[in-house]
Design a binder for these strands. Structure first.
Lengths: 158, 158
DNA sequence: TCTTATCCGACTATTTTACTAAGGTATATA
DNA sequence: TATATACCTTAGTAAAATAGTCGGATAAGA
């Protein structure tokens, strides 16, 4: 089992989409600056998210990504699964063949832990996260910083 | 956060100790054959377990390792911690400085997940595991195989 | 003193992570 | 139709971690 920046980035990016829903597609460039995630890395992650039907894309200028379903029906566990970060804590993908085809001493313990984690993460939707106060506060801060950056850019052009 | 064979090996080895308690120290060679874990790798893991006061060692022939406390006061989470496998799911060690010194959008989610996992694993002692039916069955199977191996070895010597 | 076993440090192959680079493709707008 | 935007794809890569191996030192019982 691993839970690293890959899965965290994916969930963060999906939450960013959920937070900025309703104003048309969101570009990866926007997510990249807001969440400080490398653009090309985001592209790789979104390729997987798209293949797993979690987002849909719009090409061309003004394009970007949108959630493919309503945010109350997308669960954190799906996002993590989509980028290949398994939530399985066993060494045998829960097959029970961890020690020469048989279960190892601690097989059931890791099974229990896995279902524990799975249950937790499959109980939290993007909607749930959007509704959280701490998320809203962080998001507000990020939006302010983002707008400020845009303003400076515009002035530079002029 | 990661939970790989390192942590699983450590817990498995500690459980092996707990299961064979009472007949003096258990050698790593025994654990190695029973649990199919490389002896040198076990040595590395037990160095850490010893430094964390989870086991005590007896050198020389007939020596080996014993639990340093009673098995009902050693919890799975301690064993995993001892071999440096963090149960923390955040990217900032729960410091909240994941994004330029501030919390990232999903910081609190990973905090919640971490405490969820921590709570689960700190609620399970070696005693609890020893008492489990599935553990006892696997252990019996392993002991039979182990004794058979010893018998064959003795005959080879003769 | 020989054997058994813990101790200890250094070394290594393999895998994964978290990227970067370098292109190509589709489409809205001027 | 030109062009800029933004998605899409593949390939490569530095750094870190994993899962070991190897060689030898130390301690204690037979």
């Amino acid at each position: 089992m691993r839970l690293t920046t890959k899965g965290r980035y994916a969930v963060t990016a999906m939450l960013d989409l959920a937070l900025h829903e309703g104003r048309g597609p969101i570009s990866l460039a926007d997510i990249s600056t807001r969440q400080k995630i490398s653009l090309s890395y985001l592209e790789q992650l979104f390729a997987k998210l798209r293949r797993n039907d979690l987002v849909k894309s719009v090409r061309g200028p003004g394009g970007g990504y949108q959630l493919s379903r309503s945010k109350d029906s997308i669960y954190v566990v799906e996002v993590i699964d989509a980028v290949n970060e398994s939530v399985d804590a066993t060494g045998c993908n829960s097959n029970g063949d961890c020690l020469d085809g048989d279960a190892c001493l601690t097989h059931h313990l890791w099974c229990d832990l896995s279902s524990q984690i799975h249950q937790f993460l499959s109980g939290i939707s993007l909607e749930d996260l959007v509704a959280r106060k701490d998320v809203q506060e962080v998001s507000k801060r990020q939006d302010r910083a983002h707008q400020l950056l845009n303003t400076i850019e515009m002035e530079a052009v002029v």
